[in-house]
Computed example of a mutant assay.
Amino acid sequence: MTRPRAPRTGEDGVEPIDVSQLVAKVPVWLDRLCEIGGQIDRDVAAAELRHIAMSMLGGHSQGTEAFTIREAKDGLLGFLKRPGTDAALRLNSRAEAALLDVLWLIPPPPELAHGQSATEAYLEGHLTTETLCAAAEDALIRIDTPRLTRAGVPAKGHGRPRSDTLEWAVDCLCELWERSTGTTVTSWNSSHNEYSSTSTSPAGIWVTEVISALSGDHLGSAVRRHVDAFVKSRK
């Protein structure tokens, strides 16, 4: 339902991304979090790191993001005109992602089996047309709502997806650091009483290491600016 914007690669707009080097580094990054915060849920933290990495490596412009917001809206509107389980499963991937996001948040519909989630029921084709339509209508509202800036105010238009930015990746890593270690992110920029262009706090060093590894370039000064902004936003 609706065609994706060009260019796209593969059946679903997804191009294979080489994550072999990433896989080797994730345990090292998790070990550092454990050193600071003790025991953490390594599986959850690893999944979050992979999500951030996929965006940094270009995943944000593939898969669901291979479709524009307009194409996602067209897909959901087309579904609402001719609703049904089969039609829902034929949604373009960005429209389906928006629908699944809503299903994660709504109260469990009555047709769910015991212990089953709404998303599981959706994938198994067990949700009623009424539930799917209500979720699609909510998804349309969410898609059409302008994103919020870091200051918490609506942006002018949709703009680039926030997951297409270094700012987003740094913020996600800072939040992961705070949740995993139980310590607050700080951003020192001095080392041995000398000015440093990069963050020299434990959190800043870790975030810089992750970002630089993912980007294939040393982005220390750019990361420091975004870590500084993250710290200020917490005050």
Rank of each mutant, 00 (worst) to 15 (best):
V19H: 02
L214Y: 03
S215T: 05
R225K: 13
S20H: 13
L99M: 11
W29V: 09
H114V: 10
R160K: 11
T131F: 08
W168M: 09
K73G: 07
A118L: 09
V231T: 10
R90K: 12
R225N: 08
E11L: 15
E194C: 15
R147F: 01
F230K: 01
R8V: 14
Y195T: 15
S180E: 01
L123M: 15
V227R: 02
Y195V: 15
P83K: 10
V227A: 07
V227D: 02
E120I: 09
A121R: 04
A72G: 10
G10V: 11
P83F: 06
T9G: 12
G125A: 12
V207G: 01
I40F: 05
K81D: 13
E124T: 09
G115C: 12
N193G: 15
H226Q: 13
R50W: 11
A87S: 12
R32S: 12
T200N: 07
G75V: 06
L176D: 01
E178P: 04
T128N: 05
G38Q: 09
L148Y: 06
L173Q: 07
K156Y: 00
A169W: 01
L89K: 13
W29K: 07
L148A: 06
C133W: 00
I36V: 14
S93E: 11
T183L: 08
G38E: 09
D217E: 15
L127D: 05
T186C: 03
S215D: 05
R142V: 08
R150S: 04
C34G: 02
S233K: 10
